[in-house]
């Protein structure tokens, strides 16, 4: 990205230093109490709520000129949301490099996925979160859910899982499946597929979560215990489509289903475009 395309007159990474300090303080608190939702003064961003305003504010508060930023949406680097966020940071953060390669990135902002490539120490995952409250659908009163978290009173969440089994015959949601962090706080992992839940457990990377509209931040520090909720007789199973990637042949990745014609033809491809591309390149070499 050329310097000419960068916007003059904006602070580095768009947010003013006071706001960044406020968000960093909230992030420190979030890291200190893993899984606990920390309120923060969410700012108006130049894109609508629901497009990742929380994630962008977190990224803007931690990014520096020496960082390498990757942005994915549903695992892909080339979708509208990912491209526009990447372009945004390129314009407001002079010196920042962007990448589509998981291994090269120091910060990965994501919507709905965790990369297939294992994360390493020093990397930061930034999740865009629409609804930070895992109990939201069960208990709409915010003061009450706050109390339930304070008292670690999570029977209600288990009721939700009970209802899922009673109704659908299996535990849990295919995405945003609730987790217990550090054996203490119930946390919404954001709408990642349950397939990705195990990747959060004992991850070497720092994981930060930002909910712009709901004005909450939370975090999972590196090497933290993250367990998906389940029942003894209905253990949590990470779900994936039973198929093979039509492009790279992977059988162990999260797949998107693509309809190829109007006669019911369909195929599966990796949702993680970087991982899939790397595999294809390796196979070709």
């Amino acid at each position: 990205m050329s310097a000419a395309m960068q916007n003059e007159g904006y602070n580095f990474a768009y947010l003013d230093e006071g706001t960044k300090r406020m968000i960093r303080r909230a992030l420190l608190k979030a890291v200190a109490v893993p899984g606990c939702q920390i309120p923060f003064g969410s700012r108006e961003m130049p894109l609508p709520y629901g497009w990742g305003t929380g994630g962008i504010q977190v990224t803007a508060s931690i990014v520096g000129p020496e960082d390498v930023l990757k942005v994915i949406d549903q695992g892909a680097d080339d979708t509208t949301n990912a491209v526009s966020i990447r372009r945004f940071f390129a314009r407001v953060a002079p010196g920042l490099r962007t990448t589509e390669r998981t291994v090269e990135a120091s910060i990965i902002q994501t919507r709905h996925r965790i990369p297939e490539t294992p994360l390493r120490e020093g990397q930061v995952m930034v999740y865009q979160v629409p609804q930070p409250e895992p109990l939201y659908k069960l208990e709409p009163r915010r003061a009450e859910t706050k109390r339930l978290h304070a008292l670690a009173d999570y029977g209600l969440m288990q009721v939700k899982l009970y209802e899922d089994i009673a109704r659908h015959g299996r535990v849990g949601s295919s995405y945003d499946h609730p987790v217990m962090v550090g054996g203490r706080y119930l946390m919404a992992p954001s709408p990642i597929p349950s397939f990705d839940n195990p990747k959060m457990h004992m991850s070497p990377a720092l994981q930060l979560f930002g909910a712009g509209r709901e004005r909450r931040l939370y975090a999972v520090p590196p090497y933290t215990d993250v367990r998906s909720l389940d029942f003894e007789d209905h253990p949590f199973v990470p779900l994936r489509a039973n198929g093979t990637c039509a492009l790279c042949g992977a059988r162990d990745t999260y797949l998107d289903e693509m309809v190829t014609d109007d006669r019911g033809g369909r195929l599966f491809v990796c949702s993680d475009t970087d991982h899939c591309g790397t595999k294809q390149a390796e196979a070709a070499a």
């Binding site: 009173d153 029977g155 209600l156 009721v159 209802e163 089994i165 003894e232 007789d233 209905h234």
Partner: peptide, 15 residues
């Protein structure tokens, strides 16, 4: 679920 809630609240985890 209504009847089970109290059981789960006191730690029952076998569906």
């Amino acid at each position: 679920g209504n009847v089970g809630e109290r059981l789960m609240a006191v730690g029952a985890r076998h569906y």
